Amino acid sequence: MAPIVTLFAWAVPAFVAGSPVDHTWVTTYDNRQTAYPNDQAVAQAGQDYWYCWGGFHPTGGTPPNPTGFLGQQSGDLALARCYVRSNADSRQVPAARGTIFQYGVDGVCHQLANQVLWATAAPGQAALTVSNARGYMISTYIYGTYGLQTAAWAARIATCGGPAPPPATATMGGMAMAGPPDDFEARARAVLAGQPDTLANLLALRVDTRRFAAQAWPGATPSAETLNARNQHLLDQAAAVLRPDEFEAIFGVAPGTKVELIDPTMVPPDQGR
């Protein structure tokens, strides 16, 4: 019988001072009660810490959320460890990347944290996500809930023996789109209730956005600067189909806000060369 544990999701501000985006990660312990100094101490205590393409953080905390706590839910520890290796830095250990193989290309910390949290999915229980993190709606608009490597992610779930992802209802450019609304679509539908044309335009643009983002980059893998500029352009395109108040209600920032999802320190040194 696989051990069932409580998985906790956390946030700290992203790498840029004053950033409207949070970095997220997952643990098997409540760091409001016990704050370990490093992953060695976590492992020695028989606990798990998933870096999720970030550094080690003993505790969480953001300006609007002093503890950085994003949620907790029971989950299958063996599945979580199979999806993404714990107590290992994503920059150094490929197994700690899940199927966010290339940071900023396949997804960011939000998508990798959600992959760990897929271990909380069960019959009658939706998986926990880091949807309460700042910047989450921006990243999921571009990268989806679990990243752009949808085929690889489905294969990883199958290999680990986890519950199947939601059935796909359409395929765009080889990328399967989940049938039920994801976190972004649910937010968009709530904000744009009663405005079917605007909603349809935004969701159609999102399909195009994700198709574009999923395309293989020609030549060298892009730098963090290039990826941030690309993502900013995609976000600005969404602003063009929404009123300013609608855009802010969905994305959590005002139109035109500079948003950097990609932390340059997480990008391998040879990326962009």
Rank of each mutant, 00 (worst) to 15 (best):
P3R: 14
A11Q: 05
A14R: 00
G18A: 12
S19G: 10
N31H: 12
A35E: 11
D39A: 15
D39Q: 13
A43N: 02
Y49D: 03
P58V: 07
P58S: 14
P63W: 07
L70P: 07
G71H: 07
G75P: 02
A78Y: 06
A78V: 03
Y83G: 05
P94Q: 07
G107K: 00
V108R: 04
A113K: 03
W118Y: 09
R134S: 06
R134H: 13
G135L: 02
I138C: 01
S139D: 08
T150I: 13
A152C: 09
C160P: 14
G161S: 08
G162F: 05
A164C: 03
P166G: 07
T171A: 13
G173V: 08
A176I: 00
A176K: 06
D183R: 05
R187S: 15
R187L: 11
A190M: 10
D197V: 10
L202H: 12
L205T: 14
W217P: 10
T221N: 08
S223H: 03
A224Q: 00
N228I: 01
A229M: 04
R230I: 06
L234I: 03
A238K: 01
A239L: 07
A239D: 12
A240C: 09
L242W: 01
E248L: 01
A249M: 02
G252W: 01
K258S: 15
K258D: 11
V259W: 06
T265V: 12
Q271L: 10
